[in-house]
Computed example of a mutant assay.
Amino acid sequence: MSQLRKTGFAYYHLGELIQYEGVEKDLEQLQNAFDDLPPDEYAPHLNRRRRYARAVIMPGSHRVEWLPETIIDGQDYYEYFQGSFNPEYTGEYRRFPALTKETRANRLLEEIIRFDFKETFWMKEDALMPIHAGIHFVKLYVKEEGDVAVSSPNNLHQDGEPFTFAHLIRRRNINGGINAIASPKHRGKMLEDMAENEVMTTFYLEEALESYGVYDPLVAHYVGEVTKGNEEGSGERSAILIDFQPTVIANPDDIRSMLGDTTNMISV
């Protein structure tokens, strides 16, 4: 039994597990992709920058297929929804600028998605259909002394997707960014308010492609705020977050398009 299946948490170093000719160049391209991330328009004061994309993984072949973007005023976006699981945006759809086509074509990114997917496990009926993958590029960015960059939500939380994986791409000139894993009963708490024996583990991701995964029903997780380090220039914690959820044949009672109100429905 894998560690992820046993405890709901597993650590990986994909720099040691994904090897092919040209991987260093592909990693550099991913690092460069974080240079032009736009500010998170939902929290511009929290020094968080991000892009996002959606894909599906085909059962059996593990082929990655990118879903089409939404185009608004000439800009490419992807929609994101967490239901009640993010208390900062409960029941709210958010849209994020899309990952560029160049980034989506990066072989290392596709290898990371496939590696993560192969770590997941599903009920048989969920695995019959393609699995949805959400790919977040998130940079906690601190430019000036006194800047604080904060992840969302800023507490121990669950994501609402069965699986989430985090992959460090670049960390430089920062303090903070601690990761913590705990029981779901501690969801909503801050790490500093918990006793040591209430936390399963804490750790830092420091090297490129250091990673971890969580099985959402078994654990809550957290990444702490980031402040600027002592070197000249800005600081950042840049990471790729990948979540997976099934695309199942839905109960007709749960399908919003079955409600009969055609006013806001679109043609495809």
Rank of each mutant, 00 (worst) to 15 (best):
120 T>Y: 07
233 G>H: 12
107 R>A: 11
48 R>M: 02
84 S>K: 15
8 G>K: 03
33 A>K: 05
205 L>D: 06
189 K>Y: 05
186 H>S: 04
240 I>E: 04
82 Q>G: 09
224 G>S: 03
168 L>F: 07
73 D>F: 14
13 H>F: 10
25 K>W: 01
177 G>D: 03
25 K>Q: 14
93 Y>D: 01
22 G>W: 04
244 F>Q: 10
163 F>A: 07
168 L>S: 01
19 Q>I: 01
209 L>M: 12
67 L>M: 15
158 Q>T: 02
45 H>T: 01
206 E>I: 10
127 A>W: 10
149 A>S: 04
111 E>T: 04
184 P>M: 00
108 L>R: 05
196 E>N: 02
1 M>N: 15
27 L>Q: 09
210 E>H: 03
55 A>L: 07
202 T>R: 06
43 A>Y: 04
203 F>W: 14
158 Q>M: 12
38 P>D: 07
44 P>S: 10
252 P>A: 12
219 V>L: 03
45 H>A: 15
150 V>M: 15
242 I>H: 07
233 G>W: 15
210 E>R: 07
184 P>L: 06
48 R>T: 05
33 A>Q: 02
217 P>E: 11
33 A>L: 11
266 I>N: 05
161 E>M: 07
143 K>E: 15
93 Y>N: 00
165 F>V: 10
90 T>I: 14
17 L>G: 09
127 A>S: 00
248 V>C: 13
45 H>L: 10
72 I>C: 15
21 E>F: 10
137 F>Q: 07
135 I>C: 13
17 L>M: 08
146 G>L: 00
210 E>G: 11
218 L>S: 05
133 A>T: 10
159 D>F: 00
132 H>P: 09
195 A>Q: 11
157 H>D: 08
35 D>L: 00
168 L>Q: 05
192 E>L: 12
169 I>T: 04
55 A>K: 02
99 L>F: 14
148 V>W: 05
199 V>K: 14
171 R>A: 06
161 E>C: 07
78 Y>G: 08
122 W>K: 08
32 N>W: 08
247 T>E: 08
66 W>L: 14
16 E>F: 00
209 L>G: 12
236 E>P: 08
189 K>R: 09
238 S>L: 04
11 Y>G: 01
201 T>Y: 15
136 H>K: 01
85 F>G: 02
143 K>R: 15
254 D>N: 12
181 I>T: 10
24 E>L: 13
182 A>K: 13
210 E>Y: 00
108 L>G: 11
36 D>S: 00
63 R>H: 09
169 I>F: 11
32 N>Y: 06
84 S>T: 14
147 D>K: 09
160 G>T: 05
200 M>Y: 10
68 P>R: 11
87 P>I: 12
53 A>L: 04
243 D>H: 05
264 N>M: 14
187 R>S: 06
38 P>C: 11
238 S>A: 08
174 I>L: 09
204 Y>S: 03
158 Q>F: 06
137 F>L: 12
224 G>W: 06
13 H>I: 10
238 S>D: 13
21 E>Q: 11
152 S>Y: 13
188 G>K: 09
43 A>C: 02
199 V>S: 10
246 P>N: 00
267 S>Q: 15
223 V>A: 07
59 P>M: 04
127 A>L: 12
61 S>K: 03
174 I>M: 02
61 S>M: 07
17 L>T: 05
119 E>T: 06
264 N>G: 03
129 M>A: 13
211 S>I: 06
64 V>S: 04
